[in-house]
Structure formats: C-alpha cells, structure tokens
Design a protein around this nucleic acid. Structure first.
Ligand SMILES: [Zn+2]
Ligand SMILES: [Zn+2]
Ligand SMILES: [Zn+2]
Ligand SMILES: [Zn+2]
Lengths: 132, 132
DNA sequence: TACATAGTGTTATATTATAACAATTAAAAA
DNA sequence: TTTTTAATTGTTATAATATAACACTATGTA
C-alpha cells in the first residue's frame, strides 16, 4: 500500500496524466500535454517526475525513458520493480509476483552481497501481438 | 562462449576501449577517447555500439546510459543480462549466477507468458563502499 | 513571528541519440 | 572473376532527453 503523499499542484497534474495513460509516457510528451495547465518548461516536468519516482507513485522504464504509474501494492516504494515490455506494441505491464520479488529481494551474489534495490525488465511479445 | 565475430575497424577500436575500462563508459566519453584514432562523430560511435550490443560483446547499462564489455560466458548474446551497481562509486559488475539466470529464463507471469529476453539491475553498495 | 524546507518559474545549456545522404568496403552469388 | 547485394563508413545537421543556476513563493514548525 502506498503511504498517502500530499502531492503539490504540478505533481498532481503530472501524476494524473500518467495514471490515466494506458502506456508509459515520455517526459516531453507529458510536457506537451500539460502546457494548457500552465506547466511550460521541461524542468517543471522533470522535477515532478523525480519526486513521484522517489515516493513510488510512478516508475521509470529505463530502457524506454518513459514513466508509468505504479499499480502494484507490493512494490516497496520504487525499491523493487519488475516490468514486462512488448517489443512490438510497446505495452508495458508491472509484474507483481510474490515469488519473483521474494527471490530477487533475497538474491545474494557470489560474494554473499545483498542488494537494497533492483529493477527488472522482461522483453517479449504480449498476448495480442503473439496472435498476429 | 561468444561466437567469433570479425569486428570492423571502428567496432574494434571501440570494443577495445570498453573492454579495457574498469567501469562502464558513456558514448560521448568513448567519442573523446577515440578521436585520435579518426572517429570523429557521435554516429560512428553509436553505430559501433549498436552492433557490439547486438552481437553480445558489450551490454548497455540502461539506468546509466553506459556500456560495459561482457565478461560472462553464460549470458546468451544480450538476451539475459544482470548487473550489480554501486550507488556510491558507480562500480558495475556483471552477475553470472546459474541459479538466477535459470530462474529468470523460466519465469512466467500470471498469464503464463514467458519472455525471450530480460535485463536486471541490482543497486546497493559494493564491498569497498560498505566499509567506509 | 522567524526560520527552515520544499516547491515553483524561468532561461540557458548539457547530454544522449538519430535522420538523411553520399561514398566505400566486404561478402556472396552468378 | 565479375556482378550485385549488404554492411559499414564519413559527414552534417538536428532531435530527444535531462540538468544547472538563480530568483522567488508556499508550507510547515519552533
Ligand atoms: Zn510499482
Ligand atoms: Zn504487443
Ligand atoms: Zn554478458
Ligand atoms: Zn562502491
């Protein structure tokens, strides 16, 4: 569950847009979409994005430079994220698998080192694209 | 094991540089370092990088926009990669764990979908930085 | 109130990456 | 070997992504 954060004006505008979007949004596409709401400069977007990522309301899809709202109650504030990405239609889905997150949270490398955070991106074809 | 690829002149210059580097290199840092060898434009660098990634000689660290040589004989040509990243010194190490790669290669999401490719990035502190 | 902290607005600039086109080289097919 | 096809190169220009710096404003808290 997400802790309630009181989003500021810009944060709320940008979160709402991302939250409503069925696919991840890129920063400059966000910018174009919120200009009518008074957000005029890239920095205003990036600052809101940074904060939203930090508090776990959205995640960055690193391989796509795009942002998606978190819909996974088990992902601990941006510390443990996993996504599936369709290489044809670019549909991105957050994976919420207890098995996977337990496995990765407990993973130790050969030096016995544990990690505080991870990001995993799976690539393949989504159902719809598999059938074509 | 890597299939032997006959690298072209530019590919070789750029691979050699990355391969010798203890840490991942960024595209423009590569560019500055190979200008004395006649590679003058970003595109020449990016083209070589694209090819080297494609054939699995190097990997891109997505969260850092940087490139590292593959030192993991079990990673199947860029289809299955895992890294640990130190959040202080930015040291990056390719993880080669049979357990991990088997687990991820066989991972199915709740729709039963399997993936053809993945990239995993772990974050934490390396040994050296933990002791500080 | 006074102070600290976080957020905003703005301009400029840095960093990362690709488009388009002509020329060259290497590979493979005839 | 010649032909022809694909891959690579060189080059200029430009697109896309992201941050620096600074002045100002709102918010919380002592
Ligand atoms: Zn999430
Ligand atoms: Zn798809
Ligand atoms: Zn590798
Ligand atoms: Zn370190």
């Amino acid at each position: 569950m997400h802790k309630e954060h009181n989003l500021t004006k810009n944060q709320k505008i940008i979160f709402d847009l991302i939250d409503k979007s069925p696919q991840p949004l890129k920063a400059y596409s966000i910018l174009y979409n919120v200009q009518k709401k008074g957000i005029k400069a890239p920095l205003q977007v990036y600052r809101a994005l940074d904060k939203l990522v930090e508090i776990g309301k959205i995640h960055k899809i690193e391989s796509r430079n795009a942002f998606i709202a978190c819909h996974n109650s088990s992902c601990q504030v941006a510390k443990a994220t996993a996504f599936s990405i369709c290489e044809i239609c670019e549909k991105v889905t957050e994976i919420s698998s207890t098995g996977l997150s337990k496995y990765l949270a407990n993973f130790k490398d050969k030096d016995g080192m544990k990690y505080s955070k991870y990001n995993l991106e799976f690539f393949g074809l989504c159902k719809k694209c598999t059938l074509k």
